[in-house]
């Protein structure tokens, strides 16, 4: 077995930190996997910002309804007790602080909790923000799941984001393939190391000062 956590293990580790009964919004990509790893004895209710509370798993071909999708425009199902609502109500749940946890992917996250996950700022890029800026400002706790570095080995945990911000100072905890990292008043601090990973490796691959586990 190679060292570090897989995508599924990162998602499972994040799920451990979501309390029973939480209303949860999951971003696209690895965050979607969190729903597969709900700890025994807990229930999470999933919100999807296009207008559904009580989102269930992907449908079978027979179950599929073209008018029932999530914010990533994938077809979904509902659980008993689900509710539909329009966008103003949906974003009232977000901005009004009614959603407990949001799990997002990211391009960069900074030591002060800044997150940049909507645009590279490249001149020819077509900007597309969706609900990301609403979520990071409104949801009570913002978790990030991300590989510790980019495909080319650049750190994604940085001193200061070079990409345009989605929101300043909003992230509380980061789950990477190498470690669980908290954003504290003193900057990044490792809360937990993945199996087979030592602190020195995490420090080398982090683009900002980082404190060892307490």
């Amino acid at each position: 077995m190679s060292a570090g956590w897989t995508r599924e293990q990162m998602a499972a580790r994040a799920a451990q930190d979501i309390p029973d009964g939480a209303y949860v919004n999951l971003g696209i990509g690895i965050p979607e996997l969190v729903a597969q790893f709900v700890p025994e004895g807990r229930e999470f209710i999933y919100h999807t910002e296009n207008g559904l509370l009580g989102m269930g798993p992907q449908p079978t071909e027979e179950e599929r309804d073209l008018d029932l999708m999530n914010a990533g425009k994938k077809h979904v199902t509902i659980i008993p007790g689900a509710a539909y609502f329009h966008h103003a109500d949906s974003f009232s749940m977000i901005r009004g602080g009614h959603i407990d946890v949001c799990v997002l992917g990211t391009m960069q996250v900074a030591a002060n909790g800044d997150i940049a996950n909507w645009s590279t700022g490249a001149p020819d890029a077509i900007p597309a923000v969706g609900g990301a800026m609403d979520l990071v400002q409104g949801v009570k706790r913002i978790f990030v799941i991300t590989q510790h570095t980019t495909k080319t080995g650049d750190p994604k945990l940085v001193e200061k984001c070079s990409y345009p911000l989605t929101g300043p100072g909003v992230v509380s905890r980061i789950f990477t393939d190498l470690a669980v990292v908290d954003v504290t008043e003193d900057g990044f601090r490792v809360a937990e190391l993945a199996p087979g990973i030592n602190f020195e490796e995490v420090r080398e691959k982090t683009g900002a000062p980082i404190l060892p586990p307490k």
């Binding site: 974003f91 020819d124 077509i126 900007p127 597309a128 923000v129 969706g130 609900g131 800026m133 609403d134």
Partner: peptide, 22 residues
């Protein structure tokens, strides 16, 4: 068409878009 400069774009966060309409 956007890259060709034939259509303009105003980008608005999703929740802000909903609330501006409401």
């Amino acid at each position: 068409l956007y890259r060709a400069g034939k259509v303009a774009l105003e980008i608005v966060p999703q929740g802000t878009l909903a609330e501006r309409i409401r």
